[in-house]
């Protein structure tokens, strides 16, 4: 029997993206640069997070014409973002044929109570998280890929490390629990019991776990990979730097050979200009933080 868009098909695509770099792009020309540098996928956007942050206003799903142009330009999978809870944007992106939808805190949330019920879709979803419980809620709703949120558009890796460490520590904690402790743990976490039990037994998430939000240099990518990320999303870090082509190549290089410092040195030597300007996240007022959107 032939079955389309099975759970294995969805998680499988996420698995094919492992060990790679997914780059934010705002037009076909940038998408080509990303593909030529060895990106495994591109995220089609109207504005990169740093510009969304600077310009303010409501950030929505990208113009479909831009997404289509990007889909026509590259052969690698194309992702696009919908607002948290905006299932109509997600329906449109699925009908357009994007390969992955990111229900993303980088855009202005459309619903303050509910995320999209992602099991209803044929297209796989990726969602952000700041800790294990949030990751499990999203997987429970049907996310086939998890990425830690970090603080998008900040050029500052501190939130990305906090969130990745939180997820990895959470998994270690569950592994150490006895069976009779799991129901109470699920209640306290606010996470689906079945997933809590599964992770306690398997010692890993049932979907891949990538890192996002704040990666600006090859060493940032190497750090996140060593902390447990299986791939990295680079948003503003490439096209807000002074050397997008060289930086894209260098970040791909450092992600491939993340555990080998001599290779990362070689990657860093390929840089040709300054990284994007960064923001001290501690100085950001609560309402300007993207990581706290979603629950």
């Amino acid at each position: 029997m032939t079955e389309k868009s099975t759970w294995r098909n969805k998680v499988g695509l996420a698995e094919m993206l492992r060990g790679g770099v997914i780059m934010d792009v705002t037009n076909a020309e940038q998408a080509k640069i990303a593909e030529d540098a060895g990106a495994v996928s591109v995220m089609a956007l109207e504005r990169v997070p740093a510009d969304i942050r600077a310009e303010g206003g409501v950030a929505r799903m990208a113009d479909l014409k831009i997404i289509e142009q990007i889909m026509e330009t590259v052969t690698i999978p194309v992702m696009a973002k919908c607002r948290i809870g905006h299932f109509a944007e997600a329906q449109v992106l699925e009908a357009l044929g994007v390969d992955f939808i990111d229900e993303s805190e980088v855009l202005t949330p459309a619903d303050e109570s509910f995320h999209v019920w992602k099991h209803d879709f044929k297209v796989p979803f990726v969602c952000g998280c700041t800790n294990l419980a949030e990751a499990l809620r999203r997987i429970g709703e049907g996310a086939a890929l998890i990425r830690t949120k970090g603080e998008a558009g900040s050029g500052n890796i501190v939130e990305a490390t906090r969130h990745m460490r939180s997820v990895m520590t959470g998994i270690e904690h569950l592994k150490g629990l006895r069976t009779e402790e799991l129901m109470t743990e699920a209640k306290n976490m606010g996470a689906p019991f079945e997933l809590v039990k599964e992770i306690s037994e398997s010692g890993k998430l049932p979907v891949p776990n990538f890192s996002a939000g704040g990666i600006a240099t090859p060493t940032d990518a190497a750090l996140m990979m060593q902390l447990g990320a299986e791939s990295v999303f680079v948003g503003s870090g490439i096209f807000k730097s002074e050397d997008p082509e060289a930086r894209a190549l260098a970040i791909v290089h450092a992600t491939t050979y993340y555990e080998d410092a001599a290779e990362v040195v070689w990657a860093c030597k390929g840089l040709k200009g300054a990284a994007m300007p960064g923001i001290d996240v501690a100085s950001l007022p609560e309402e300007e933080r993207m990581a706290t959107r979603g629950w």
Binding site: M1, T2, E3, K4, S5, T6, R8, N9, G12, L13, T75, P77, E94, G97, V98, D99, F100, K122, V123, P124
Partner: peptide, 15 residues
């Protein structure tokens, strides 16, 4: 031929 069955929404399982 790459992506011969279409994009991701056309991915499938079969015997």
């Amino acid at each position: 031929q790459r992506n011969a069955f279409g994009r991701q929404v056309d991915s499938f399982e079969a015997d």
